[in-house]
Nucleic acid binder design. Structure first.
Lengths: 271, 271
DNA sequence: CCTTTCGGTTCCGAATAATGAAACAATTAT
DNA sequence: ATAATTGTTTCATTATTCGGAACCGAAAGG
């Protein structure tokens, strides 16, 4: 049941990375044979690749139990990636203030291929166990942030991504076909915000808005999430102006962020 | 001033990763020539490596500005790495309860070569999500967690790591020589906990304990950090029993975690 | 005690991918 | 127009990787 994202594993590094992904997909340290079991590579090749990954510190090898696990170098790199991502660092203060203002769970997400990647999160005062955590990947077609982002994607990209959704029915209100989803995206485009009506998890509702650049390029999305027990979609909608304000601020900050000391202004570079 | 960790960049993936590191070391998106400027690789080679990294989603290329930035695949992988690291996920609840009990900042760290890698953090006031602070690298010789870990390292590993410290004098109380540090490590080994007497930052003090497996293997460290304005080392020491209790629980949980459904018990595997 | 199996490691000729000097293209200064 | 700067492609050469098969050591089984 491995959710392998589309590989073009062409070069040497591609093969190495596909093995790395495979090791990651087991959610515990693995022995050589575990990974060999469903590997497209022959024994010797896999062995060498694993050794390479270990010497590169992408994997660690536990000599005692003879198991491979993901290495810390990844965490280090991801820290850089997170800081370097134009969205996450500049969005931080805005998420915090949204969190303080609303007292609910706040998410920041980007698209990662056809999926949603959560970049940051603020927990509600009263904690709720939920699927998302920073760094985690989730479905796009049935989450507030996912639908908000899809709705503002250029048509060609949307058409590439739509058929890649799994359309699994998580709850009675999940949108399970391209048609249903497309209709909803139209609504969202019209209203400027997306709702999660327990599409993904029963009892979990949310309102989300896209983060759009000045040129209407979709950069990501933010959302306020709560439970149907504590509040209602009607009440959540009251926060839409706050969300849109924050999204706007984040977009502006992110665009400025690329040119902190650059002679060229963003305006000067538009096409 | 790039803090390049020792590469043996041997294979093809090694070269690719060294380029990735280089891109990461700039803390903003970079143009081709920026990275070519101090690259050991010739133009064409570097070009191809960058292209590979982009097709592998480790880098993203912004066509408009012609810049490379770290890709989201890293964040995804790091999420897996973080979850898979035996320490971070099992430590989470313990850090939270320490945080609630003490009201101070809590750190969880591991050794990453000669440096300290922070895996998780709790701040008294607001919760912090993982990549904002976790993933950061710091010095070992002048932080509480660093010294706590060094003190319980096997002699041969310690000897390899000691000369790799920078011994920069951050404050008047920084330990600036192998001799001073070695003496301190002896003390720490004796007492079972380490103190940061404003070694790294003026006004910042902390008490740290190592996380030791049943076989006395050093797995990481946790610490309680505060300011000399708000409290004192004397008062912080009162928390040592709590810290040690938590460290012990974390170690037990981490060891158990490897064998959730395994026929072999940890006991059966000791040497 | 010998044999087989199993998990892991090493060999080495063949197959493949990486290399990098140099040419080329596309902008941007002079 | 000319030069310079930046980014991209080509291609014969070179270095790596591939992977079937053999090998090793420990445990299971006869």
């Amino acid at each position: 049941m491995t959710l392998h994202t589309g590989h073009k594993s062409s070069g040497t590094v591609g093969k190495a990375l596909s093995v790395l992904d495979q090791v990651a997909s087991f959610e515990r340290p693995v022995r050589f044979n575990d990974v060999l079991a469903d590997s497209p590579f022959p024994k010797a090749t896999l062995y060498r690749i694993l050794q390479n990954l270990v010497t590169e510190d992408l994997l660690t090898f536990d000599r005692k139990w003879q198991t491979y696990a993901l290495g810390v170098r990844l965490v280090r790199l991801a820290h850089s990636a997170w800081k370097q991502s134009s969205l996450a660092p500049v969005a931080r203060p805005h998420l915090t203030s949204l969190s303080e203002k609303t007292g609910e769970t706040i998410h920041l997400a980007q698209l990662d291929g056809p999926h949603v990647l959560y970049l940051d999160k603020r927990d509600a005062k009263r904690r709720v166990t939920m699927f998302s955590e920073a760094g985690k990947v989730g479905p796009a077609y049935c989450t507030g942030v996912g639908k908000a982002m899809l709705a503002f994607l250029p048509e060609d990209e949307l058409q590439r991504i739509l058929p890649q959704q799994s359309y699994h029915r998580f709850t009675p209100s999940t949108l399970c076909s391209v048609q249903e989803l497309t209709d909803e995206l139209g609504q969202i485009r019209q209203h400027g915000f997306a709702l999660d009506r327990e599409d993904h998890e029963p009892g979990i509702i949310c309102v989300a808005v896209p983060i759009l650049s000045r040129t209407r390029q979709m950069m990501g999305a933010i959302s306020i999430t709560s439970t149907s027990a504590r509040t209602s979609l009607g009440k959540l909608k009251k926060f839409v102006p706050d969300l849109q304000g924050a999204a706007c601020d984040i977009a502006a900050a992110a665009e400025y962020w690329r040119f902190p000391d650059n002679q060229k202004t963003p305006e000067a570079m538009e096409i």
